[in-house]
Amino acid sequence: MNRRAVLVGATIDAAIAFVAAATALPEGARWPAFAGVLAGGLVGGYLAGRGVGAWHERVRHGLLAGLLGGAALAVAVWWSLQPGTPEGALWPVNYLLATGARWLPPGAAARYDALLGVGAALACGTAYAVAGTLAAGAAPGGEAEIELSRD
């Protein structure tokens, strides 16, 4: 296990999450920035898995970095749902929760309001873990290439 590679990937994921939560953005930039934040899991996973070894080792590194970075994103999303926080790249989560409640049964949003926020935070964190795992598996590794010789 290359702890340094995992730490690099998780640190990138966490930095993206916390900058997204703490930086206010103009209204027109929030949705594209949110897509960029979710794609940040790909960056962390790629960095965690690049050059580590066989594909299954890269996947394990990307998953671990994605879980750590995803935990940071989950905290950042939860924090961004609190009153008085900057309206930035994580604002679309708040918007989706506010407008998506119309598909819930009557009274469910009021009854489970705190759980909806926690669920949204966990879903975003899971997106980082999945993206990190996929990106690490697709990253170039250290497998030895088989050379075929013609004799």
Rank of each mutant, 00 (worst) to 15 (best):
M1S: 13
W78D: 06
L42E: 04
L63P: 00
I146T: 15
A101W: 08
G62I: 04
L64G: 10
R3H: 13
L116G: 05
Y46T: 04
R111L: 12
A108Q: 09
W91F: 15
V77A: 01
Y112V: 08
A109I: 02
G66T: 03
G84L: 10
L47V: 06
W55D: 14
A22D: 10
G119C: 08
A71R: 02
W31K: 13
E143W: 08
G51M: 07
G49C: 07
F18R: 00
A108H: 06
G44N: 04
I16P: 03
V43A: 03
M1N: 10
L115T: 07
A22T: 13
L68G: 05
T126S: 09
G125I: 01
H56Y: 11
G66Q: 01
G119Y: 07
V59N: 00
A22S: 14
E147Q: 11
A10I: 11
V6L: 08
D113Y: 12
Y46G: 04
E87F: 08
A21P: 09
G36K: 03
E145R: 15
L38H: 04
P83H: 04
G45T: 05
W31F: 09
P92N: 07
A76M: 03
Y128V: 01
P105S: 12
G100W: 03
A35E: 15
H61W: 04
A114H: 07
W31H: 08
G28K: 10
D13H: 04
A71I: 07
T11P: 02
V75R: 04
G45V: 01
P140C: 08
L115Q: 13
H61M: 11
T99E: 14
V75H: 08
V6P: 00
E145M: 15
V59L: 07
T85W: 14
G40M: 03
V118N: 05
S80T: 14
A71T: 12
A101D: 09
V59W: 02
G9V: 03
L38E: 06
V43I: 14
A121P: 05
L47H: 01
L67T: 11
A35N: 15
T126F: 12
L81K: 05
G70D: 02
H56T: 15
V77F: 01
A14R: 00
R58D: 06
A109T: 05
D151K: 12
V130Y: 02
L73Q: 00
L47Y: 00
L63H: 03
G9L: 05
A131E: 05
A121D: 07
L96W: 09
R150I: 15
A35C: 15
I12A: 08
A98D: 14
A20I: 02
P140G: 06
E87A: 14
M1K: 06
E87T: 13
P106H: 03
A71Q: 06
G28P: 04
R30Q: 07
L115E: 11
T133W: 04
G142N: 14
V75F: 10
T85F: 11
T23P: 03
A65I: 02
A21V: 11
L73V: 05
I16Y: 00
L64M: 15
G141W: 01
